[in-house]
Design a protein around this nucleic acid. Structure first.
Lengths: 184, 184
DNA sequence: AAATGAGTAGACTAGTCTGTCTACTGTCGC
DNA sequence: GCGACAGTAGACAGACTAGTCTACTCATTT
């Protein structure tokens, strides 16, 4: 009797290793050993390592937005909701095993695979849209228009995530939050 | 009679491949073949592949700031000099083979090597300092203080570079420039 | 003339990589 | 009972990995 299904165990292990170590340095051998499954079982569920990567990205995408929406649900007030975007990131970055954005990491390692790039773009695009709707509901000092403010928030968050991963801290995100606060 | 020295040819080729394809997917065999040198020559000049990576980072660091300073030299006026930071990036991103920031790409692929991380941090730290001095000379609407404005510019540039690499465009950097223009 | 060092070609070690395949076991539905 | 299916272990193929080493050439310096 297994606690979790084989397919889940493969995807869990691969996800962890792809994120912690990187895609290319993670070999099939390591995945099957740490997931404690047979080699043929992996290739039964996923036709190739690339397919496993795509499954990882798809699942991360869903999980990421589910977590964001869970975080945002109790937050009230348009201004507070915009600022909560930063708190959400700070919460993620506070986790001891946080190592940067899953999608940025894979995108940086990726050389040419359009299917991979497409998923990264979809993820970032959807988040950009999410910011845009929050901004349109929030009142702000109109030194920038809605579109520009949304761009600014998106770019600040993206920058703070990259810098945060490098310096292993979330203070960049806190700085970004204070900057945006000046305009709300 | 060789046009260029062997060591330069190794470093040129490795740099190109590390940047275009990524570090881990680039093998020693490909480097020696494309640089058209003997295997032993590579290990004569660089004791390991890691050492070659560090040499690539060091040379990129120097070249990057040399290029930035060349770009900034003719720019006059404190306000113009701040904005030129964005123009410099746009120029770089306009190049057909631009694929993102060398340092961010290597950092994303890196899993644990402190020497690599240290070089990336040094590069980003020095640029952050460079921005800070430009900002301190420039007059601006004091909705943010100097320190915050420098942070904002740094994070916007970082975000625009990552997003630009993903969407293969420099419009994010142009947007970032317009945003900053509103505060000068 | 001898020595040094930069360069060459390529064999070699010892291991890793992804992916395929065979042969087997246990469980479930019919 | 029997077939289908999810799972196991592990051999295997073929290619690639970083790095070492030998044996050689050529040019410059001492």
């Amino acid at each position: 009797m297994k606690e979790t299904g084989v397919k889940d165990r493969i995807l869990d292990t691969a996800s962890r290793l792809f994120y912690e170590q990187g895609y290319h340095v993670t070999g099939i051998n390591q995945i099957i050993e740490e997931a404690d499954i047979a080699r043929a079982s992996l290739y039964h569920h996923f036709i190739s390592k690339t397919e496993l990567l795509l499954a990882y990205l798809d699942r991360s995408h869903e999980a990421w937005f589910r977590e964001l929406e869970d975080f945002m649900r109790p937050v009230e007030g348009a201004r507070e909701r915009v600022l909560a975007l930063f708190d959400h990131r700070i919460m993620r970055q506070s986790r001891p095993n946080w190592k940067g954005c899953n999608f940025n990491k894979i995108a940086a390692e990726n050389s040419g695979d359009e299917q991979v790039l497409e998923r990264v773009k979809r993820h970032k695009g959807r988040f950009r849209t999410y910011i845009r709707t929050l901004v349109s509901e929030a009142p702000h000092k109109r030194v920038l228009d809605d579109e520009q403010l949304a761009d600014m928030i998106f770019l600040l968050l993206e920058g703070a995530t990259v810098a945060g991963a490098m310096f292993r801290s979330y203070e960049e995100t806190e700085k970004a939050k204070k900057i945006v606060e000046s305009f709300l």
